[in-house]
Computed example of a mutant assay.
Amino acid sequence: MRACSGSSIINHIFSLLVLFVKWTKFLEEKNNLFWFVHSAGWFGFALVYYLSSLLHDLRDIFVVIIFLNAYAGWLFSIPLRYIYRKVWNYKPINIALSVLFTSAITGLLWQIVQNINYWEIYKHGFRPEQLIYYTKNGLFSVSIMLSWSVLYFGTKYYQMLQRERQNVLHANTVAHQAQLKMLRYQLNPHFLFNTLNAISTLILVKENDTANAMVTKLSEFLRYSLDKDPMKKVTLESELQALRLYLDIEKVRFEERLQVAFHVAKDCEQALVPSMILQPLAENAIKYAIAVQEQGGTITVNVDKFGNDLLLELADNGPGAEIKNGNLFRENGVGLANSRERLQALYGNDYSLVVANNKPSGVKVNIRMPFETKVNS
């Protein structure tokens, strides 16, 4: 008997937890949350109205009036939501004037309905001689509608701040993930091993000046890659300088097999871009386009401005790859997913990263982002 009782309690607790989870998910939808809070607020108004009526010797029929008045307030305040959506992006003074005007009109209309309900039901069809009496106690109703409006804007601003806070937390999370991933790109053991091996070879063949130059370039590249925050922006000029350092280091390995071409519009050099946004793409191109071909290949970097956008393109003339719906399918391919995450965190939806086949052969990656400089950033 006790076992059955214990099992029943556990089932009840589990059912309550399931119900709570479903209810939480239901309220996560902004539209559902509005209707719940809106209805709960007017129910609370009716409850307070009823409790205050108990202080007076009123007939039971007054409960019907309370219900009708609360329902009328529930209906009259719904259009305010759609009006405030329209004025949401107005200047603060215009928003304030819109709230005062709409609250006043809605409150007066609501008060007229309340007075009619009271006269019709409680006073058996009484009508005042002057029309001004239809708005009696209108100031109280206007204050209720104004309170509804303030709560609406307060809730909306709170939700907006919560979304921004979540975006910041997400951006920080992505930043840490990106930083860890970039360490893998920047400090790739094969890259370091091959570079150090090339330097060692240069020393053995007595090309000390070249070896010293390569050590300097490797040091500068590693310092740049480790010092730069992956969620910060740098000038395109410094980003391209770091990319050139990386490619110069790789040219020691591939010599004439690796050719590089830069085409950069002059008015783009001071544009701001995410740090190390191109290096993972270049690493992919070297791994899948240059290293796999006996004759090597060419990596081309194009930068231009179109309207208010900055356009970056990194292309190779390698054997190409399978591309479906803008996604690149390469075994153990890295770089693109990380770049998308960082661009999404920095620019929201105001960016694009498109992978396509290059002509006559190879792969090209096009990135579009807002054109920003230190002056307007």
Rank of each mutant, 00 (worst) to 15 (best):
E294R: 11
I286G: 04
V292A: 04
V303A: 08
K305P: 09
L278T: 05
A282P: 05
L281G: 04
L311D: 08
I299P: 07
A289S: 15
M276N: 14
V292H: 04
I286E: 04
L278M: 14
L310G: 11
P280E: 00
L278C: 12
N284F: 02
V273W: 02
F306D: 14
L272D: 05
Q279G: 01
I277R: 04
L278K: 09
G307C: 12
L272V: 10
Y288V: 03
V301R: 07
A271Y: 04
I290K: 02
G307M: 11
L311Y: 12
G307R: 14
G296N: 01
I277K: 09
L310K: 11
N308T: 15
L310C: 11
D309K: 15
A291F: 00
D309V: 10
D304I: 01
I290E: 03
L310N: 09
E283W: 03
T300Y: 12
L312P: 05
L278V: 10
F306S: 15
P274G: 05
Y288A: 06
A271H: 09
N302K: 14
I277Q: 08
G297E: 07
A282I: 01
K287E: 13
E283D: 12
A271I: 03
G296I: 02
E294G: 11
I286Y: 03
T298Y: 00
L311S: 13
V292T: 13
M276F: 11
A282T: 01
D309P: 07
T298Q: 14
I277S: 11
Q293H: 04
L311K: 13
P280Y: 01
Q293W: 00
D309I: 09
V292F: 00
A289C: 07
G296R: 02
N284W: 03
Q279C: 06
G307T: 07
Y288D: 03
N284I: 03
P280I: 00
T300I: 14
L312D: 05
V301Q: 10
L272S: 06
N284H: 12
N308Y: 12
D304G: 13
Q279T: 15
E283F: 01
G296F: 01
N302D: 15
